[in-house]
């Protein structure tokens, strides 16, 4: 059974239909990269997987459990499906340690010392153990985004969603974030990412999903998709992204 099963999902904002029947399945350990022009529904789809947006039709299941904004144990679900945002969304008034340990301490009832060990552990995985006592405003954009990834990792998620996580970064800071994500991919984390980083999509992803006008236009392994685009839309998208 697929970890995530998306069947014929539709979603509108007012009179604008953003998702027009999207179907997609994601297996455990897969790195799925969603590409496409802005307005194609990529980010909306990602947010639906985490129940941040309500879907109007179709069904999304994670481990066979239907995902709904009113699902029972939504909070527990959110801990298993982490999401990292374009704008980092760290809490400015908390240190890096507190950002990471807030939820585990409040809801998983771990002790403070245990929390610090947990923070150090996940920070080491993003290469920022030395920043544990810093505040977000004292970090660069790339460092903030890595902390946001670490905060997500601390929840011990089975699946991580990345919503254009490098788009707000200065070009020279993109690499450090991508490297962290590559490491996570290598360690077997199931990841779904929306990105404009074609190099990353090509080299790291196990599956590329090209979305166009609210539909999955083409999908397949990156080698296939980039070498032999079947539709003119993907062909012109690849040409423009170069």
């Amino acid at each position: 059974m697929a970890l995530v099963d998306i069947k014929n999902v539709t979603k509108s904002y007012g009179s604008i239909e953003v998702l027009k029947g999207v179907s997609l399945s994601i297996d455990e350990g897969e790195i799925v990269t969603i590409i496409g022009k802005s307005g194609s529904g990529k980010s909306t789809l990602l947010r639906c997987i985490n129940a941040l947006e309500r879907i109007d039709g179709g069904e999304i299941t994670v481990e066979g459990q239907p995902v709904r904004t009113d699902m029972p144990n939504l909070r527990g679900f959110r801990q298993r499906v982490g999401i990292v945002f374009q704008a980092f969304n760290l809490f400015p008034h908390m240190t890096v340690e507190r950002n990471i340990t807030l939820a585990p301490i409040l809801n998983k009832r771990i002790a403070k010392a245990e929390g610090r060990a947990l923070a150090l552990d996940v920070l080491a995985r993003v290469g920022l153990a030395d920043k544990i006592d810093a505040y977000p405003a004292q970090l660069s954009g790339g460092q903030q985004q890595r902390v946001a990834i670490a905060r997500c990792l601390a929840m011990g998620p089975q699946l991580m969603l990345f919503d254009e996580v490098t788009s707000a970064l200065d070009p020279e800071l993109v690499g450090e974030v991508l490297k962290v994500m590559e490491d996570m991919a290598r360690q077997g984390m199931t990841m779904v990412l929306v990105t404009h980083e074609m190099g990353f999509a090509r080299n790291v992803a196990s599956k590329i999903v090209f979305m166009h006008q609210g539909r999955v236009w083409e999908e397949g392994p990156p080698a296939d998709l980039f070498a032999n685009p079947r539709t003119p839309e993907l062909r012109s998208f690849i040409a423009s992204a170069r």
Partner: peptide
């Protein structure tokens, strides 16, 4: 609203989001 969203995505309750995420910077 993105701060609230970030809190929700960590599995915090509405009260926890208010108390820990929203209130301190708002008071400042």
């Amino acid at each position: 609203g993105s701060q609230v969203e970030a809190g929700q995505c960590l599995g915090l309750t509405r009260w926890q989001v208010f108390r820990h995420v929203v209130l301190p910077p708002a008071l400042r």
